[in-house]
Structure formats: C-alpha cells, structure tokens
Design a protein around this nucleic acid. Structure first.
Lengths: 160, 160
DNA sequence: ACTTGACCTCAACTTAGATTCAGGTTCTAG
DNA sequence: CTAGAACCTGAATCTAAGTTGAGGTCAAGT
C-alpha cells in the first residue's frame, strides 16, 4: 500500500509530533536544518524511523541545557543518523552537554555570589562592585584586578 | 555654550557608551524602549545624567541574570528614573533578581541531576528517562508521576 | 464517490535585542 | 573657517527558533 511496505515501525510527522511533544512545524524546521531526516512515501509524505523519536528527544534535551541548534547539529552529526545512539554515543554526547551545563551553572552561581556580596554594600558603587564591573564579561577567566568604570563620581551613591 | 550649562556632570552618548561598555546603538535602543532617558541639547544631542551610568549597570546585571528587557523595564520603572537608587531600591531589585537567578540555577541543577541519573542507564530509554520525558516541561512544579511518551517500542534501544 | 483530516511547499511573519547603513547635522580642534 | 569626529533619525538587516497562512494534495472512513 506504499512504495515500501508500511511496516508499522515508521512514524508520520503527526505521530512523531504527538509522541515527542514537538510541533509539526518545528519538526519540518528541524528537518530543513538537517537535524533529522525522513523517507518520503510515494505520495511525498514524510515517514520517520522510530530512532528519530530518540533523536528528537536528544535535541530537546540539548536545548533545555541551553545549546543552540547549530551546535546540537554538530554534535549529532557524529551519529550517522541511521544509527540508534548506543551507550558510547550517549556517554560522549551527554558528557559534552553536561560540561556545558556545568559551565552555565557555575557562571550563574558566580553571579549569585556577587549579588550576595553586593547586597551588603547596598549602594551599587560602581567603583568596586563586581556585579557592576561590566567589562569583565570580556575577561571571563579568573578575577584579577577589576577594571573600574567610574573614576570620580564624588560620593558612592545618593544614600551613602 | 549650551541651552543649560554643560556642567560636567552630564555624559554624551559616546561617553556613556565607553564607560558602560554598551554600544551607542544599544543605548539608543534602550532609550527607545524607555529603559533610560536623556535631556537634549539645543543641537538635539543626548545628555545623560551620571545616574544613568548606574541605571545601565543595573540593566546589564539583570540581563546577565537572564531577565528580558521588558521585565527589567518593569522593575526599573519603580525607580522614578531621576533618582539614584538607594539602598532600599537596590535591596528590592536585587532580591527579586536573585530569586529569578536561584530559580534558573535550580532548574539547571535538576537537569544536571537527571543527566547524572541517565548516564548510568546509557540507553536513553524513553520509557523511564526523566531527561527524555519532554512533556514534563509543562508540569514544571513537583515531580509526581512521569508521563510516558513511548508506549511499546519492544526493546530499550539498539544496544540493550 | 465524497468528505474530512492530515499532509505538502513556500513565503512571510514573529520576538528579542540589537547592529548597520544612508543621509544629514553638530561640535571641536587647529 | 574648515576638517573630521561625533552625533542625529529612520529604515533595513541580522540571528534563533520557530509559527502562520495560502493554496494545493493525499489518505481513510462511510
């Protein structure tokens, strides 16, 4: 009833959408971006391997971690797409993503610590508040001597 | 030499840019969004109060925390703009933003824990992997019984 | 056979947070 | 007084990650 037997192991885009919780339009989009692939039926409709469900799961996980699709694509491209990811694949991917996640968490924690420091100060002095030392976004690694952005306001703030 | 005496306490957009590390175009943009305001000289050039430097600092801090400009705007709008934020203002803002930050951190940590759990499994089984249970993004609060998205694949994964 | 729902493509639109460009004005130094 | 730096506006462009819509085809049930 189809070019190749509809063997129940393939999913239509709607099924994939329902099962993955990802909108059909997003699946189309992922396919355009090369994140997933499909076979076409004689009537030009998409049929996805079951493995694609896992691939979509991986994509959404990576997105939750905060990884942009372009990078996810790079990461997934080492799984030659036909293959169901095996333990080794998953360990590689996940350790990479976990490192990313850890970095993100550390960054936020640093920010939180700076906040805690700074609330004590209360005046948001730009002279020595780490939070306010915005250019530090550049010199990401290691604290070192802070750059100062205010050079002589004459007084810390309205209240101090 | 100006409509109002250029009393050295005001900043041109270029100066504000240099001191804050924020591009002139971005400052224009912030102004269009109502995040900052300026006086205009007789020649229609912007002059910023020094307090604006702090305001921009606050904006960038909030952005680093991950707060969208629209919300930053809401938060800042309780400082009636003329005022240098005092200790109380800062405590209110910062405690609000810190809560946001904490929530973000917790979310990422949860994700990391799920990762740790899941790496042991190695097969990315969609049946019971918390990471892969994508629809859970909806039921944000509290774990509860997980929804299953795969109902009978017949086998955990290619390797298991 | 027909209706209905699922599917197709392609283009345009969306949001956030800006940047870039074109064309014109103002300010400052020499 | 004039060159060049800095400034102005408004429109267009950009990226990311899609969504929406128009116009048309396919498939399944009755």
């Amino acid at each position: 009833m189809d070019t190749v037997a509809w063997n129940k192991s393939e999913l239509t885009v709607g099924e994939l959408s329902k099962r993955s919780g990802v909108a059909v339009s997003a699946l189309h989009f992922y396919e355009r971006q090369g994140l997933i692939t499909s076979r076409r039926t004689s009537g030009n409709q998409r049929r996805y391997r079951r493995a694609t469900l896992r691939r979509v799961a991986l994509i959404r996980i990576a997105q939750r971690v905060g990884i942009p699709l372009a990078e996810i694509n790079r990461a997934l491209s080492c799984l030659p797409d036909g293959r169901t990811p095996n333990r080794k694949d998953w360990e590689e991917l996940s350790s990479q993503w976990q490192a990313d996640l850890d970095a993100r968490i550390r960054r936020l924690q640093q920010l939180r610590d700076d906040f805690t420091d700074c609330i004590g100060c209360g005046c948001l002095s730009l002279r020595d508040c780490r939070l306010a030392n915005m250019h530090d976004e550049l010199g990401e690694l290691g604290p070192g001597p802070r750059r100062l952005i205010e050079d002589g306001d004459g007084g810390c703030c309205g209240d101090c």
